[in-house]
Structure formats: C-alpha cells, structure tokens
Design a binder for these strands. Sequence first.
DNA 1: CCGCTCATGTAACTGGTTACATGATTTA
DNA 2: TAAATCATGTAACCAGTTACATGAGCGG
Lengths: 179, 179
Amino acid sequence: VKRPASELESFVIGLVWQSGPCSAYDVRRALTASPSTQWSASAGAIYPLVRRLEKRGLLQSRTKTRGKRARRLYSVTPAGRRALRHWIGPPIAEEAITVTYDPLRSRARFLKALSKSERIRWVEASLTALEAVESRVQRWHEMYGQEPYAALLTRNGELELQVRRTWLREVRRTVERAP
Amino acid sequence: VKRPASELESFVIGLVWQSGPCSAYDVRRALTASPSTQWSASAGAIYPLVRRLEKRGLLQSRTKTRGKRARRLYSVTPAGRRALRHWIGPPIAEEAITVTYDPLRSRARFLKALSKSERIRWVEASLTALEAVESRVQRWHEMYGQEPYAALLTRNGELELQVRRTWLREVRRTVERAP
DNA sequence: CCGCTCATGTAACTGGTTACATGATTTA
DNA sequence: TAAATCATGTAACCAGTTACATGAGCGG
C-alpha cells in the first residue's frame, strides 16, 4: 500500500523519530503538549494510526515489559525516515502551501451580522482570547524551548500572535469608522 | 437535534446569509474562490450539508425553475441567523482560540531530519511557495476586496504572509549557524 | 454537433471524534 | 485502601474526501 502519509501520520512519524523509541501514549502526550489544537490526540486516533504505520513498514515496534504491563515501543524504520524527509520536503508539498486557517478571521468575515456595539465587543473579546493562546505558547516554550529549532517554533507563535493583534486593532478601527 | 453547528456549517450559513438566496453551487464557488484550502468545497460535502442545515431549521429553500432545470435556492432562517451570531460571538468559542495550523511550521519542527544543505534548500523552497499563496490572496482581493470588511480579510492574509517570510528568514539564519 | 462549464447530486470510503472499558501503578 | 493517573485499547459514529453519474445550457 503506497498511499502518501497524511499530515497527522507524518507528524507522528516525526515525533517518534525525535523521541527515540517511544509508546503511542508518549506520542499522545507530545501532541497534547503542543499549543496547536489541530489534532485532539485522542486514543482512538493514535493507537490505530501507529498500528497502520507499522503495517506499512514506516514504524517498527518492540514489546518491553515493565512490571506486569507490556509496553509497545515504536521507532522509525529507514522507510519511515525516508517518508518523513519526503513529507518535509523540499519540494514543499502542494497541500503545505496554504493560507493558514484562522477561526477568528473566518468569523470576522461575517462581522456585519452583528450590531456595531457587538462588533466592538467582538474585537475586544478576540484580543483577550489571544492572551490564552499566548500563555499556551509560553508554557510549551518553557518545557521544550531550550533547543534552537524548538525555539523557532515558539518564535513563530510569538510573531503570529503579534500580527493577529495588529490586525485586530485594524479591525477595530474599521468597525469604529463604519456606520 | 440541538448539536452546535460545525465550523464549516457555520461558515456556510454565513456565506448564504451574505449572498442572499443562493444555491449550494454558489456556496461551493464561494468556498473555492477563498484562498483558504481548509475545505475542498466538494459536492459530497456541501449538498448533504445544506440539506442537514435545512432539516435543522437553520436554512430554508425554495425551488426556482429556470428553463427546464430546478434550482434550489437557500436562505437563512431567523434561527440560522441566531446560530450565525452565536458562532461568531462574543463570547469567542473555545475552539476558535487556537494557534493557527501552519504546515510549514509543522515541517520545520523536524528540519533536523535533513542535512544542512537540504535545510537551506527547504527554507528557499518555502519562501518561494509563499509567493503562490500571495498571488492566491491577491486574486481573491481583486474579486471581492472593494468592500471594507472584505478588504480586512486580504489585509490579514498580507500580514500573515509578511510574518511567515520574516520567520523563514530567521529559520535560515538559525540553519546557517548550526553545525 | 462537440465539448465545456453549470448544476445537482449519490456511493463508497476513511480518518478522526467521542465515549467507553480495563487493568496497572502511583499517590494521598 | 481509595482515588487518581498511567497506559492501552475498542466501538460506534460522523463529517468530509474522492470518484462517479447525469443532464442542461451555451459557445465555437
């Protein structure tokens, strides 16, 4: 079966590659810790996923017994490593070349459905909401941000937040001017 | 059935609200025109979706015959309007408060899986890829960007692109410095 | 009249969701 | 020892995907 690995699958291969031999549960924790809420990291997603990847030969597992409990530790096979590199690129995959999806932007598209005063309250609420995002990024940074490549991810989050704030303030100006 | 409308469902309600009575096909075109690739706007997604929304009382339809062909024109019901406003907020829904998902950032997380020269090539390729995104935003702007609220969306795209470029250049510096 | 786009759908699949189950291990 | 959390899963569901089908209308 030579289907290209999905975004989540590839990401999981990456996580396993990064954390050496690790369990599905470890993968779930890494996904949960990540500030992105793109994936829920639910057991129902991850356990079947790693099985799938093993069946395709991208991951391999050995069972390690600790106490009475058997743990299944996954690591990346050479084919998995190739798949990872292929996913990362270059070339950059078509589906990676996108405008990022911002739920706030989506909602702003229909701001006219609100009354003027509500629009302003919406902007304020959004600015406040971004503080929650900020602390999520911060928390992740404190945990993993030592390493220079990891720090780049935090930096991305910071810059993104900055720009969303700037944008929201522009939205506010527009809202205030409009009738 | 009082389940909260999904992100796509709510967005579609918004589109129908914006474009007055319109067909499922119109919705699909609006989604296709949007620079975001979050949704494929496939027929298999949209036709069942609007039916669903009609069954829930958020949309209503009347059939209009033009020539021999029957078109089903949807419009938003008062309940749909309420649902739309509820989705937009305030308060901002939990699931809207997120770090946006950026496939390039995801990939950058595993840049160490590449050789140094490939990392640099990756950054260059990413910068080039963003040009495609830029033209997509530009195209949308030319079509719909007259109206001030629509223009804000383009502005968001512009700012986002700027920041992603800035960030990629920082990545390049990090890559160049690293062993 | 041919081919393209308009327009409306259906069918099969699939990847991810929520919710549940279960037992081991740790901590209060 | 009771409660919490670690750890591994399964089952049912569902929304969105690709792929296909069908026919109208229109421009060359």
